[in-house]
């Protein structure tokens, strides 16, 4: 439906005008990489060792930057009661969810596109298997954003949303995080598609299941 795209486009237009969220996400991701780079300074020479810690470092950067962005995803909708205005429009509740989710997806991918080369530079690491790495990151991010967008709407009206969101989000994305980290590790060690097919399949299952469930329950989240 075209209106989903309009919602996503509206969100991105707002975001690129102020760049509030994007800036803090990129900055945070950068800080994570720098801190880890300092911590792991002794092993930076050995690409074998770096490949061991890389998946953890990358996904921690993505997830923390992501939860910062997501916790603000519905804040703009609360100003001036916009969410209510949106709910008055003749569109399905799930379209609102899908539109917001797509916008968050674009922001996350942008952060990731900046973070990965930065990681390669700071860790003095040449990345192999870029194509499959991209697929893994994409599928992992879809799962993360699917649940994250829903929980962002769920926590936006609570007193402690910035803290509450990661507390709720991390246990739920664990099943996507584990295969994503595993597959990232395998690919960076030079594995091929055959070695990570199971992980990719699991990620795909997670993405589809949570996307569909989120569509079903979103209306209860924004109801009042």
């Amino acid at each position: 439906m075209i209106r989903i795209l309009h919602i996503a486009a509206k969100d991105l237009k707002e975001e690129f005008r102020t760049k509030q969220m994007l800036n803090s996400m990129v900055l945070f991701s950068l800080l994570v990489i720098v801190v880890f780079s300092i911590t792991f300074a002794p092993i930076l020479g050995s690409s074998q060792d770096v490949a061991m810690v890389a998946p953890g470092v990358l996904w921690i950067a993505f997830i923390f930057a992501g939860s910062i962005g997501l916790s603000r995803s519905f804040v703009a909708e609360l100003e001036n009661g916009c969410l209510e205005g949106l709910k008055l429009c003749p569109i399905g509740r799930s379209s609102i969810y899908t539109g917001k989710m797509m916008a968050n997806m674009v922001l996350m991918l942008l952060v990731e596109i900046i973070t990965v080369p930065l990681f390669a530079i700071m860790f003095n690491f040449s990345i192999t298997g870029l194509f499959w790495l991209g697929i893994i990151i994409f599928l992992g991010t879809v799962g993360f954003v699917c649940v994250g967008t829903l929980l962002s709407a769920l926590t936006v009206n609570t007193r402690t949303r910035e803290i509450l969101l990661p507390v709720l989000l991390l246990p739920l994305v664990l099943p996507a995080l584990i295969p994503a980290v595993m597959a990232t590790g395998s690919i960076l060690m030079g594995a091929s598609y055959g070695d990570i097919s199971q992980e990719l399949r699991l990620l795909l299952v997670y993405d589809v299941v949570f996307f569909l469930v989120a569509q079903l329950v979103f209306e209860y989240v924004i109801q009042d």
Binding site: I178, L202, V205
Partner: peptide, 9 residues
């Protein structure tokens, strides 16, 4: 799903 992913791991 956690169970599946941990078993895989």
């Amino acid at each position: 799903l956690s169970f599946l992913s941990i078993r895989l791991w």
